[in-house]
Design a protein around this nucleic acid. Sequence first.
DNA 1: CTATGTGCAAATCTTTTGCAGGCTA
DNA 2: TAGCCTGCAAAAGATTTGCACATAG
Lengths: 138, 138
Amino acid sequence: MAMDGHSVVTSWLARGNLRPTRQRLALATLLVGDGENRHVTAESLYAMSTATGDRVSLATVYNTLRAFVEAGLINEVVVDGARSYFDTRMDDHPHFYWEDSHTLTDAPAEEVVISGLPAAPEGMQVSRVDVVIRLRRA
Amino acid sequence: MAMDGHSVVTSWLARGNLRPTRQRLALATLLVGDGENRHVTAESLYAMSTATGDRVSLATVYNTLRAFVEAGLINEVVVDGARSYFDTRMDDHPHFYWEDSHTLTDAPAEEVVISGLPAAPEGMQVSRVDVVIRLRRA
DNA sequence: CTATGTGCAAATCTTTTGCAGGCTA
DNA sequence: TAGCCTGCAAAAGATTTGCACATAG
């Protein structure tokens, strides 16, 4: 029998060694409660929590997203100098960035391959390779 | 006979239909005066201009960099949510982002190829593909 | 009980903007 | 001269932080 939404979220937080407080459970449920990949900004997640009636302050949304990133539960994606996007999908994959609506989505192709990637310089290691395909109205 | 630094900068500005004011000449000289590719932030360019004795206000540095981008003379690269980087090299090429020093440099490999790039969705066109190789201390 | 987590407002940081005066064409 | 530029200070937007109170383990 599959775990219900609550235990999924609870164990997700546990994996990051984060205490299951009311606010974290609410935000985590919005992020990964249904198993879908999601891309949010602090503001958009705050709006979602407000819409569902969960009372979480904006500062806590910021702090919580940062905590999730530090715990390795979500990834921060930089595509727009103005704001940060957070992605619940953890593997290295390319993104579409819709310039007109400032929206981030997963690029559908699984076959994207980057070849000839330069080796990391002496004493350094590749932390991540970000590939952002910027889209504008044709 | 080759053009001297001054005419290089002057014609560079002219290509963007920008009037050669004292401030723009100073900043453009720092950026492309010697033909080298450069990566700067508004703050770092401001520091450079201060160091060379050129008096340019920080607001003007911001406005000027923005004007150069709009004129198609330089590119803006997003790698760090906190600040914008500007690159004097105009072709599409991958970057190294040194996470510990917050520095941006060109990735040395010319052979980087991205294959299997997904087609742009209906009604959209690819504006640019950003590839950022993030480095951290090994 | 003790270490964490939360909320609020204030602080910080980067970038933009309004406006009066200056300068290029 | 007309329109574009510049500088300054103030504004704006995103994110962080200080501190007192609340809560998980």
